[in-house]
Design a binder for these strands. Structure first.
Length: 255
DNA sequence: ATCTATTCCTGGCTGC
DNA sequence: TGCAGCCAGGAATAGA
């Protein structure tokens, strides 16, 4: 997103080419003739605010697992939309598994109002209060976008590991200090991954498939059977909220 | 409120 | 070497 904004801001969309209807919502072609007024993020959604005279609209993008927004790349077999700007800049939306969505809308859909707060904009106290008011499992809560927005499977597992909290721990049963520690772990993990380029969309240009440095930071995610970096006990994998969940059975406690 | 299962889809992996 | 079968996963949805 940070890579997208400087180049797209103020540019007018001259032409739109659409390939795979499945990932497209609304009449994406109507984005033509609009100018990019802002590029921002809400949870896992990237919002491209558009303006044409007094009219406003949005391109709302959710990358899902394998979606990519690519500037000036070559369109391939997984390119579903192509935006050509007035200065020759080209924006591609690629998505291999088509779990992502690219939507054109005049007003943001309801689901945006249901998005919970960004972890960065929550105080530790507020997070702990919200967290301890819920009776669901810690991992499920972190994945619930109406509780906090922006966390996916990787960062949920990594945050719980750093906080030493078992993914199946009941949120309401954790002591306040532990809930606060979880908020610190979340912010730490997110900041660290951003620092290592994990969230910079323009870095995804490499066609060699999502191999960012952030993978080197993972201490539990997809490390099943490998020794815990802290205590050496093998990392375990279980299902929580129908999601593959990785944790250290010694370092992460339910209490 | 909160749980599970299901659906979408493709590439990567396993095993024969 | 080829190919079938299985699996992951974000979020919406249905049903408990």
């Amino acid at each position: 997103m940070q890579g997208l904004a400087p180049r797209m801001l103020g540019r007018r969309i001259e032409r739109v080419e659409l390939r795979q209807p499945r990932v497209l919502v609304g009449e994406v072609g109507r984005a033509a003739d609009f100018t990019v007024a802002a590029v921002r993020r809400q949870g896992k959604h990237i919002l491209i605010d558009l303006r044409r005279g007094r009219r406003t609209a949005h391109l709302a993008v959710h990358l899902g697992m394998t979606g990519q927004l690519v500037l000036d790349g070559e369109p391939g077999r997984h390119t579903h939309a192509l935006f050509l700007f007035d200065d020759g800049l080209r924006l591609l939306y690629n998505d291999i598994r088509q779990f992502g969505r690219l939507e054109f809308c005049e007003r943001l859909p309801q689901r945006f109002q249901r998005l919970g707060p960004d972890p960065f904009h929550l105080s530790e106290e507020e997070f702990a209060r919200r967290f301890r008011s819920r009776r669901s499992m810690a991992k499920a809560l972190l994945l619930d976008q109406s509780f906090v927005s922006g966390l996916g499977n990787i960062y949920a597992d990594e945050s719980l590991f750093r906080a030493g909290i078992h993914p199946r721990a009941i949120a309401a049963r954790l002591r306040r200090a532990r809930a606060g520690g979880l908020h610190r772990a979340i912010v730490e993990v997110l900041q660290e991954s951003i620092l290592h380029g994990g969230s910079s969309i323009s870095d995804f240009v490499s066609s060699d498939g999502h191999r960012g440095r952030f993978q080197l930071l993972h201490r539990v995610y997809r490390r099943t059977g490998q020794p815990c970096a802290v205590c050496g006990v093998p990392i375990r994998r279980i299902l929580v909220a129908s999601r593959g969940t990785h944790f250290c059975p010694r370092c992460q406690k339910a209490g």
